[in-house]
Nucleic acid binder design. Structure first.
Lengths: 211, 211
DNA sequence: ACATGTGAACTGCTTCACAGCG
DNA sequence: CGCTGTGAAGCAGTTCACATGT
């Protein structure tokens, strides 16, 4: 496997191609061209080929790609061929929605803990796992060594939670709190920001209206 | 107001700057420098100044920016100084989480309808609004003319829903279903994709592990 | 003196166009 | 002949460094 600096946009598209390939497999389609993948995922055929070219040669000239083997290759690239353990902090509506998200299990993510501070929630079950008190966070991290922490707590508590999970050895964080959080360089964090996404929509509508 | 092609990344950062400025206002801080904004939002000072420069001159040389007036200017740029009506389709955990999201009301978004097909959910209240049957979607759109539709339904129904809201005159869509959806050019769509975000994390962890 | 505003240089992603190969 | 794989060109976003204004 080559080891250049790969654009993040490429990884995002690979994830999208991979989902489309999964659907093709379910439909029993075995071969696909870059231009078909492009059309169905909002990319261009050159883009699809360039993205794949970072990682090797997966197609057959004059023919296209074998759906199943391309799917497997992309899954390996994305690292979803392994099992990753995750914990969810915050058992509000959002935390629970995430704990139930089908895409997680499908992709080999294993939920090993969900935490909250609200005594009403603690002890209840979410998708077969008990909601635990936040006090038990370190204990569970010690026992399970989760790879990923999903932060679904109010903004004002997010940095504290991040500090604690980093201290407990988590390597990756997916943050839903509307805050910019800091982590040590060896811990990666990604933000999913509802307000920012909506504001991109309103910016464009407001721009149109000004024209 | 200048009318160049503005990078999407700039709009995303403006949204983040704006949130930070909001916090500064609450703390009673009145003046701020580009380098301080940069530090707290993960950008660089040149970036902050360039982003603002697309829209005008907002600062005072040798001094910095007035927090409140910069906040107001960015809010106007992003279009959040207006009231936007939104509907939510899907009253699962995610749809309900979104209907309760504080950031919406704060930013002038008004929820004018939440829809589902599950008879158990219909009639119940979410944040003061009744959950309606999906059959009433067109009726409500007719009456309220929502600007934005939030799609929080399973992937296999997402395109149908999008077709219906587009037909009903919605201009902007925020899609949470893990599908690439198509809309006419005059309707913008943004995707919030949990799986892709997680896969970016696993890609990086897998890459590290390969080294 | 100090922080903004900005042209110019740079970096990196995307698109093009065609060579390469089944 | 058709579709992949890929250097080269083009374009867009970021960073630099300094002129500008208070």
């Amino acid at each position: 496997m080559k080891s250049f600096k790969i654009p993040e946009a490429t990884i995002i598209r690979l994830s999208i191609y991979s989902r489309y390939l999964h659907r093709l497999m379910q439909q029993g389609i075995t071969t696909i061209s870059s231009s078909d993948i492009a059309e169905k995922t909002g990319a261009t055929s050159a883009q699809v080929r360039k993205d794949l070219a970072y990682f090797g040669e997966f197609g057959t000239r004059g023919v296209g790609y074998d759906v199943e083997s391309l799917y497997d290759s992309i899954a390996e690239i994305l690292g979803v061929d392994k099992e990753w353990k995750l914990i969810i902090i915050g058992a509000g509506k959002l935390g629970l929605a995430l704990s139930m998200y089908e895409g997680f299990r499908e992709r080999g993510f294993k939920n090993v803990g969900i935490f909250d501070v609200d005594p009403i929630k603690i002890g209840k079950k979410a998708q077969g796992i008990k909601i635990l008190h936040l006090d038990q966070l370190e204990e569970v991290c010690e026992a399970e060594s989760p790879d990923i922490a999903i932060v679904a707590v109010p903004g004002e508590h997010a940095q504290d939670i991040v500090n604690r999970v980093v201290e407990s050895g988590v390597r990756s964080i997916l943050n839903f709190a509307p805050r910019v959080l800091t982590t040590p360089i060896h811990v990666q964090i990604r933000n999913v920001d509802f307000a920012t996404n909506l504001e991109l929509l309103t910016y464009n509508m407001a721009s149109e209206d000004r024209r």
